[in-house]
Design a protein around this nucleic acid. Structure first.
Lengths: 204, 204
DNA sequence: ATAAAAACTTGCAGAGCGTGCAAGTTTCCT
DNA sequence: AGGAAACTTGCACGCTCTGCAAGTTTTTAT
């Protein structure tokens, strides 16, 4: 059944992807224009030409349509983390595991621009974005603890995961804020390097 | 009018504090027992012997009754941050500014235990807790940028603030998870020290 | 090709959250 | 004592999200 992933998706799956995309982009566009509070699920559904009930078959909340559910990436992330050779320091291992995610985002950068712009204008969503990271953290913590061979009550893995998440998040927001002169990967790399150096004050 | 703060609060303010406390503790106890989803605002209000409408005069959401609104502390935090001598590195300055908050929490540790236990059991709330920190971050970023004398588009202040927030949060959760052998201040100190050292892998 | 099975969409009803408004009641101030 | 200010409460309302019971479309097997 490993070959099954290569077979072209049927009409049903194509339609599903289509409506899903229609819903996210409709949601993003409407919220970008009118603000989070002034857009109802009904309006989004109408713009995507489906019923409001169908909206909730795709997303469990209005926010999720905007932010996306990175659960799919999470598996991949963990797999890459496990696959990283044991000699690599934990922080660096996380950065390496993130590269694939980063590249995907860089490829979809127009979508992510819009998404991050919407997030910046609606702080309530920043919450959700961070929360997504926070869920990923939980899984990462265990993997890191294994990697380092420390007892589960040791605070270090949780600290590393949380800090890595914070570094990634700031790189993301910076990427969205800057005119897109620099690729996301560079900004992530820079942030992780600064953390690994102990965050010394820069000389002005 | 600076003396006014010393005058004893009138009956009205006393009652307000009372109902507010009644609402938070009722909310925490009920949610601790039945879970976040299975407790309604009406039940909380009833337990505190006020109308449901009054609940919303005190808190803007169910979550807020559980998490609390740290806006009050925020001002104090910023003031302390500004007051820290310029020679101190940014990361350490943030830790010092946090000491007062930490002491308050240590004093109210029973309340915070319950609160953090509730948060751990209801991940949706972790979101809110982090969001509170995220809001504090925004304010801290500017102060740090001033302190370091770097241009506002420089990414460093945002990174330091985010990482400091992450370190504080992990210390907090660890404090709640451990049998309370160690004071919160120690755990915060330890986390910040590890960050300042660049988060090297511990030797197993 | 056709019929049964599976998956998807939709409307409807309903519980809950959160807000604005217009009373009533309590506390405060003089 | 009496008016002003603050607080509480009920009511109506819009919105989010869920479960259920249809209908419709796609898939699968014959």
């Amino acid at each position: 059944m490993t070959v099954a992933e290569q077979t072209a998706p049927g009409r049903r799956d194509r339609k599903k992807r289509l409506t899903r995309d229609a819903l996210t982009t409709a949601a993003l566009r409407l919220v970008a224009e009118h603000g989070l509070e002034n857009v109802t699920v009904e309006q989004i559904s109408e713009a995507a030409d489906v019923s409001a009930r169908t909206f909730f078959n795709y997303f469990s909340s209005k926010d999720e349509a905007l932010i996306g559910n990175p659960a799919a990436d999470r598996e991949l992330l963990l797999a890459r983390l496990v696959a990283t050779p044991p000699g690599v320091p934990a922080l660096e291992a996380i950065r390496l595991a993130l590269t694939e995610t980063v590249e995907t985002m860089q490829a979809d950068r127009e979508l992510w621009r819009l998404r991050l712009a919407v997030i910046e204008r609606n702080p309530a969503l920043l919450t959700r974005l961070i929360a997504g990271n926070a869920e990923a953290e939980r899984a990462i913590v265990e993997t890191i603890a294994d990697r380092l061979g420390v007892p589960p009550d040791h605070g270090h893995p949780a600290l590393v995961a949380a800090v890595a998440g914070a570094a990634f998040r700031t790189a993301l927001l910076r990427w969205a804020a800057e005119a897109d002169t620099r690729p996301l990967g560079d900004l992530v790399h820079e942030a992780f390097a600064a953390v690994a150096a102990g965050l010394p004050d820069p000389r002005p």
